[in-house]
Every structure is written in structure tokens, then in C-alpha cells.
Design a protein around this nucleic acid. Structure first.
Lengths: 188, 188
DNA sequence: TAGCATTTAGGACTAGGTATTAAAATGAGG
DNA sequence: CCTCATTTTAATACCTAGTCCTAAATGCTA
């Protein structure tokens, strides 16, 4: 026997969820019913047409791309003594965390520390060479991360910077950065 | 005077990049030319029609959703064998670079590698513990970074992942990540 | 077998295009 | 100023993947 309406609609929801790019025609063939039946089903189930589904996904993706591209330096540098030390502050907000568990993504903490390390160097072009880092404990949504950077070694074209990030006196991240200078111009 | 063809086409590309949801009609009004002109322009510039653009974006988004829960990955994961290896692609665009020198910020490369390393772990909650990284050479605007990740050691709650990022066969970044599991649930 | 839900069919209309052909408008050079 | 090429506009037929609406054909059941 052919499926009942309910059964069909149930499989239908699944099918569209699994592959949102299905046209009504494809689905109609799959279930051996007419295209009109599928359209009635979509109407009843509140499933929008293919083009609307794609539009939605595209919009979501677009939002994403935008929020994912923070050109700014990550964290607010609140104190900076060139070639000596610096402090940066970052409050973990929703765009910094994994949706699932509200834990900050590793590269966010890294970015804060890295930005600060580079800011310490008073060079036109400063880049990170090597780095060794340790995520001591997970940081959660809403926590305020304070990164303390100190220059351990200073050469004329290289800087060794140690960074410790704390949440309320508790160390959450530690890193050693080797920052180097490109070209020979000094200044900013 | 009205814009020349070249000027118009240059602005056009920008406009579509900035807002891919523009219809030809809207753009035509914006530039005070006919809809046909815009269509010729798109043809010459190789810009697909609105629906195709949306489809593309939707497909990209869908890819992500399948490989990992969304918006948690920087770069496009194009191949993934859990607990074994993975490949991620990232084209360096303007929002990834220092304005001054068009060089990609370190944390962008780190984020790509880190995201990939975490994607490799088939765990509900996976976090980065330690990492040791090396930025071999600066990466510039427009370059396509391909990160290759391989699991070096696999324990039941820890993974050692080596990542090499290349631009056209040339290594630009290298990193070792120690990813660990939180909680005891396996699976996704 | 009447009455209901369910399914199918058909036609008109839509957005946002492609593809093609043709006619204008414009600009530059001799 | 005329001519030729480039550029722009127009007009038409066609496409997909639908919507919305009306109507007819089934199927099931009391």
C-alpha cells in the first residue's frame, strides 16, 4: 500500500531537513504522488518553497561572514609601554563562543594575546614568528579576560613576549610569542 | 558626466560583493542605467544571477552544517576524516589582513588551523589545550591557504594534531595542537 | 451509496532571470 | 561634419520553481 498522508508528511519533513535543495518535482517522484500533493503538504507543514529556503540559508551564511570578520584588534589595549609591557581587556560575548557550550573559541584568546604582543613592538611591520601557547582552562560567555604581556627579551629585530591571560586572578591562558620586524624602518 | 563603462563595472563588482542580494533592477536604479546594461555587465564580469548567488551561499552554508555545527569554523573544511585527517581552505580577504601591509593577521591562520584541529575530534565538546605554532612566512591578501591536518596521536580523550598550512605548495604555517575532550559523551 | 477527506489536474500569474535580435544613442577620429 | 565602433536600450520569446485558485476524480467509511 501507498503511504498515508501522515506518514508521507512525516518522511517529507525529514527529507527536506536532510536535503533542503529538493524541488517539489523530485520529491513527488520519490513518493510517487503528484506535484500538487507535495505542494499541499508543504503548505500544511509550513515548509517554504525551494527558493525561499535557499534565500534563508544564504542570509544566515552572510550574517555569519560578517560577524566572523573582525578587522579590529581583538581586545581593548588599556595600557601599553612599548617594548616593555601591555594590558588588554576582552569581555567574552556571544560571537566569541561555541554555540553549543558557551565556551570561548581558542583562537579568540589567541587573537587577544597575539594582537597585544604585536602592539608591543614599535615597528612599522611586526609579525608573529613562533608561538607556544597553553589554554589553561575554558573561558565562558561573559567572563572578562585580562591579558598581561611582558617583554622577556628584546633584540633589535625580534621581541620575545610572554602573555598571561586571567579571569579574576585565575590564569586561563598562557603564551610565548616571538615577534619579528620586517624591513628596517622604525616608528609607527 | 555619467560613469564610464569601466568605472561602473568596477563599482558594480564592489556592490555585489558587499550585498549579494541585489537584483538587477535595484542595481540599475542605483546606477541610473537600464536593466539590460546591468545584465551585460554581469555577463562580462562573470557575476551570476541573484538566484545562483543565493544558491551558492546556501550550499556553502549547508556544507558547514554537515561537517560541524555552523559558524564554528574559520575556513571551509573540504575534507574531513574524523580522528585522522582534514583539509581546510581559506582565501585571505581584506578583513583578514593588516590594512597597512596587506599581510594576514597571525590569529587568522591560527584560527583556521585551530578550527580544523577541533573539527577532527568527533567529540561533543572538544577544546584546545596546548599548541605550538610557527608562522613560516607572511601570507598576503588574496592568497589561498590550504591547511592540512593529521592526527599524530590519538588517545581516548586527547588528540595530537599536526597542521601544515600551504600556499601553493609553500609552507606558510605549522602548528601542533593538543585537543582534549570535555565530559564523557562521545559522538556528535 | 452518500459524504467526507484526499489526491490530481489545469490554468493564470509571479520573480528574476537567459538568450537573441535589433535599433538607438554616444564618442572618437579623420 | 560625417562615419564607424562602442555602448546602451528595447523588445521578444523562453525558463524554473513556484503561488493561488477552481474543479474534478478518487478513496474510505459509516
Amino acid at each position: 500500500m501507498r503511504l498515508t498522508k501522515k506518514e508521507r508528511q512525516s518522511y517529507l519533513s525529514q527529507a527536506f531537513e536532510q536535503n533542503p535543495f529538493l524541488t517539489d518535482e523530485e520529491v513527488a517522484k520519490k513518493f510517487h504522488v503528484s506535484i500538487q500533493t507535495i505542494r499541499l503538504d508543504r503548505l500544511e507543514l509550513g515548509i517554504p518553497e525551494l527558493r525561499e529556503r535557499m534565500k534563508h540559508m544564504a542570509e544566515k551564511k552572510f550574517d555569519h561572514v560578517q560577524s566572523l570578520s573582525p578587522n579590529e584588534v581583538i581586545g581593548d589595549v588599556i595600557d601599553l609601554q612599548l617594548h616593555k609591557s601591555g594590558i588588554s581587556l576582552l569581555e567574552i560575548s556571544t560571537e566569541h563562543v561555541f554555540e553549543r557550550n558557551q565556551i570561548a573559541r581558542g583562537h579568540i584568546l589567541f587573537a587577544q594575546a597575539n594582537s597585544l604582543a604585536i602592539a608591543l613592538a614599535d615597528w612599522k611591520v611586526a609579525l608573529t614568528g613562533n608561538a607556544s601557547i597553553r589554554f589553561v582552562r575554558p573561558v565562558r560567555l561573559g567572563e572578562k579576560c585580562i591579558a598581561f604581556a611582558n617583554v622577556a627579551e628584546a633584540h633589535d629585530s625580534r621581541l620575545h613576549v610572554g602573555v598571561q591571560t586571567k579571569v579574576q586572578e585565575e590564569i586561563v591562558f598562557q603564551g610565548d610569542f616571538e615577534v619579528y620586524r620586517v624591513g628596517d624602518d622604525k616608528g609607527n
